[in-house]
Simulated scan of single mutants.
Amino acid sequence: MTRLLLPLEHAPHTDSAPTEDDLLHSLKRLPRRVQQVFLLNRLDQLDFATLAGRLDLPLLSIERHMNQALQTARPQGDAVASVAGQWYVRLQSPQVTASERIDFRRWLDAAPEHVQAFHETELRWRSLLAPARQLGHDGWYRQGRAALSLGGCSIALSLGVAALLAFDYWA
């Protein structure tokens, strides 16, 4: 998703644009799996199909995670920006159909605000690169599923052992 879908004429800077620190904070608040999918795509440039195979997730989940990550940089309450973000992610999927591409084109042509929102979505996507590098600086996201669930398993195992010890103590 590093290539632009629309030509970049200029990069307007708005005062309401979130800072890199704001974006990093927003990315850190995402679930760990969403962070991993986003970083593998953004930093390692893995496409959706490769991500789905590597993480054993359906393509629809990859799209949902990517949309969730992209929406962190979106202004709250902006419905057009939300739809533009959903289109941006959907168009990157290998499952996008010709009919969906036509629907996107119709949506884009329906109003000048749609073109502007899609353009701003691409700029938001670019703005997430520096915070993504900070978030994934140590490469934790390259580890498989087990690395992400190890903490939960160890907690569950500890609780199970504690329950057995308590049961044995009372017996």
Rank of each mutant, 00 (worst) to 15 (best):
D21H: 09
G53S: 11
Q76A: 13
P75R: 10
Q143H: 15
T14K: 11
R74Q: 10
L135V: 10
R64I: 05
H65K: 03
Q76V: 12
V37K: 01
F48P: 00
A49D: 01
L6M: 09
E20G: 08
L148N: 07
L24Q: 06
A79R: 13
G152S: 13
L157G: 10
Q116D: 07
E120C: 01
L5S: 06
S93I: 03
V83D: 07
G151Q: 08
H65Q: 12
V96W: 07
S127M: 03
L30D: 06
L123T: 02
V161L: 15
P31C: 11
E63F: 05
T97L: 10
A79D: 12
L59Q: 05
S93M: 05
W140P: 13
S99M: 07
D168A: 15
L159P: 01
A111H: 09
A146I: 14
R124G: 00
F167R: 14
Q116C: 02
D78P: 04
P31R: 15
G152K: 13
Q134A: 15
L135S: 08
D78I: 07
V96K: 03
V115G: 02
P7E: 04
P7D: 02
Q71R: 12
F118G: 01
T14L: 14
A49R: 02
A132Y: 01
V34H: 13
L70Q: 07
